[in-house]
């Protein structure tokens, strides 16, 4: 048997929001549904939404699911997660949130949570009249013909879930889980994607250093804004201000340009607590690379004893 959480079994045996939402004549109310999967794939979800157009809010959500225990539980969880949200808020719901709501899913069942997230996108796109925008984004070379999974879709799921093995890719989008002939292709795509992920933060880190080198002489010559690197007798306020300044002027512009960001959280003695945001926060390897780059920069520019911790 699968190692299902209590929550998964509870929502399977006692699903909430199961059923369809019938079209209604109520004022300021729209009904819509989105579908993913098929009977051939072994799971399929039709997500129904009742929307209040004036506020763009989801008034009600219901599901009809053909699938296994975790597919049904994931569908039910999804409806609970999106009820009361605006459409834009709902679109930020990730498959991880669905899995977390369920107290986790077995690795081999993660595709059930992905299906939930995709049905939600489909329903909202249908409501907004965006025709298969989702598929356009994922359009590309068909890699897994058993389950109809394209290369862009595989890349997206690798990126969004920080996947590192072929097995995980199969668990998340099923690709390679059929005849298995595409497993080697998936491995190639994965290696490429991992190489890209690894090089992205390295590039940003290099940019930070270049930026800093350019800023350094200007700053020192101008008005001695920064203390000399040897000055250890800074007051706490001065230290915080300098750290903040280096972050603002030398580090953040580089990160923002690459879709990330960093924020000073706190300074405890020589420990600088920063919060990585945006693209930087999603991937653990990039976080590590950036932490090192930011630390090197702060040591160089403010105080050599500083240590950076990402929170």
């Amino acid at each position: 048997m699968w190692d299902y959480s209590e929550k998964v079994l509870d929502l399977f045996y006692n699903p909430v929001n199961q059923g369809a939402i019938e079209p209604t004549d109520e004022a300021d109310t729209a009904t819509v549904f989105g579908e993913v999967g098929s009977i051939a794939c072994g799971d399929a979800l039709r997500l129904h939404l009742k929307i209040k157009p004036s506020t763009d809010t989801i008034l009600d959500a219901r599901f009809q699911t053909f699938g296994c225990t975790s597919a049904i539980a994931s569908s039910s969880a999804l409806t609970e997660l999106v009820k009361g949200k605006t459409l834009d808020e709902a679109l930020t719901v990730t498959n991880h949130e669905i899995a977390d709501y369920l107290g986790g899913l077995p690795e081999a069942k993660m595709h059930c949570s992905v299906m939930g997230q995709e049905a939600l996108e489909a329903a909202i796109n249908n409501y907004r009249g965006i025709v298969t925008e989702h598929h356009e984004e994922d359009e590309g070379v068909l890699v897994c013909s058993c389950f109809g999974i394209t290369e862009p879709r595989i890349r997206r799921v690798i990126r969004e879930n920080s996947l590192t093995t072929v097995e995980q890719v199969t668990n998340y989008v099923k690709a390679g889980g059929g005849c298995g002939t595409c497993l080697a292709n998936i491995e190639d795509i994965l290696l490429e994607a991992l190489a890209e992920q690894a090089s992205a933060p390295t590039k940003v880190a290099a940019d930070i250093a270049i930026n800093a080198a350019a800023a350094a002489p200007a700053a020192t010559s101008a008005s001695a804004t920064y203390p000399p690197a040897t000055a250890a007798n800074l007051t706490t306020v001065q230290k915080v201000l300098f750290i903040q300044q280096v972050l603002e002027e030398e580090i953040r512009p580089v990160l923002v340009a690459d879709g990330g960001d960093v924020e000073l959280h706190d300074v405890e003695g020589d420990r600088v607590l920063v919060r990585l945001k945006g693209a930087c926060s999603s991937c653990s390897s990039s976080a590590e690379t950036l932490k090192t780059a930011i630390e090197a920069q702060l040591k160089e520019r403010v105080l050599p004893t500083l240590e950076v911790t990402a929170v």
Binding site: E35, I39, T65
Partner: peptide
């Protein structure tokens, strides 16, 4: 619970979705 019930003819076909 299943969207198919006893037919799947209209699954993923162009219908009035909204």
């Amino acid at each position: 619970m299943s969207p198919f019930n006893n037919d799947q003819a209209d699954w993923l076909q162009g219908r009035d979705l909204v």
